[in-house]
Design a binder for these strands. Structure first.
Length: 307
DNA sequence: CGGCAGGTGCGGA
DNA sequence: TCCGCACCTGCC
């Protein structure tokens, strides 16, 4: 679906770097695990924002059968939200002085979580109560302890592990990877997936409220993580019902030009301004801010980002 | 060296 | 339902 902005979709300035994905203008590489199989995925941009065209190349140790290749393609389509129709969103943005310029600069950007539900859950756990640098360190330690490496197309990237593999490890093995008290959470989550009690495909069909309830039952998932999951993994554009402490400071500046505004005030404001599009809108404003910060450092943001 | 970070589960009011 | 507290680790 047009408009589709390849570069703004595959590269999010606010995301922490991770060795399972890499990109350059017009190209994106990642590993993708589907059950026991690990694939290399390469995407190339062959169109432009108003006439999008993508080339997908799939790498594997043995040639994938058509069904497996189709499954990878379907996942790419879902994870980059390629079928999204953002017509209503564009109309909304046009009349908003904060959102408008951000959408103009990143027109056609989609949400992007190039991970499965289980994998993204691991990401939310390493984000908890940690600075960015430490999150990166924990994630990379987990890749080296439980994940693997896949070399394809002249690159070598990390890949995630199967939940069963991590679930079988003793807690000390995880603690040795410097994840601290998160070891218990990682073990319990992996065990939940090993048992097959959480089926991502099935969960995608649920409504937001029921889905949220199911996710909150997962050990280690609270209000902040569930918001990230609902938006990034399940594409609920309105999943902005909680503000984590560090984002509260950023939205206070963006929306009110103040140091710290109560969370409830921020939530009421984004509902009023952006309604059912509020998380997608916030995503645009956020990525635009971080993107501009990379080009030309924004002093107040620099102070908030503890590396 | 104590405080704190891109939260969460738990026990008690 | 709401609140206070502990929690790995590493930086400030």
């Amino acid at each position: 679906m047009a408009p589709f902005n390849f570069d703004a979709t595959v590269f999010k300035p606010s995301y922490f770097p991770s060795s399972d994905v890499t990109f350059e203008p017009g190209r994106f590489w990642s590993t993708m695990r589907l059950g026991p199989h690990v694939f290399g995925v390469k995407l190339e941009n062959h169109g432009d924002t108003d006439a999008p065209a993508l080339d997908l190349c799939i790498f594997s140790v043995v040639p994938p059968d058509p069904a497996a290749a189709g499954a990878v393609a379907d996942e790419v389509r879902w994870r980059f939200d390629l079928d999204a129709d953002l017509t209503g969103f564009s109309t909304l943005a046009a009349g908003d002085p904060l959102l408008g310029p951000a959408v103009e600069r990143r027109r056609g950007m989609r949400l992007n979580a190039f991970q499965s539900l289980y994998e993204f859950l691991v990401i939310t756990v390493v984000l908890q109560n940690a600075t960015v640098r430490r999150s990166v360190q924990m994630m990379e330690n987990l890749f080296s302890g439980f994940g693997g490496r896949a070399a394809f197309d002249g690159r070598e990237l990390s890949c995630f592990w199967e939940p069963a593999r991590l679930a079988a490890a003793p807690e000390e093995e995880l603690r040795a990877l410097k994840v601290g008290y998160r070891a218990k959470t990682l073990l319990r989550q992996a065990a939940a997936f090993r048992g097959g009690g959480l089926d991502e495909r099935e969960l995608r069909c649920l409504g937001k409220d029921e889905l949220e309830g199911r996710l909150l039952k997962v050990f280690g998932v609270g209000p902040a993580s569930v918001g990230y999951l609902l938006f990034a993994v399940f594409h609920h554009y309105d999943a902005f019902d909680t503000v984590p402490p560090w984002e509260q400071k950023i939205y206070s500046q963006l929306l009110f030009e103040a140091d710290l505004v109560p969370a409830a005030t921020i939530l009421a404001e984004v509902r009023r301004r952006w309604g059912p599009w509020r998380m997608l809108a916030a995503h645009y404003v956020f990525e635009d801010l971080f993107g501009r910060h990379r080009q030309e450092p924004i002093p107040w943001l620099g102070k908030l980002l503890r590396l």
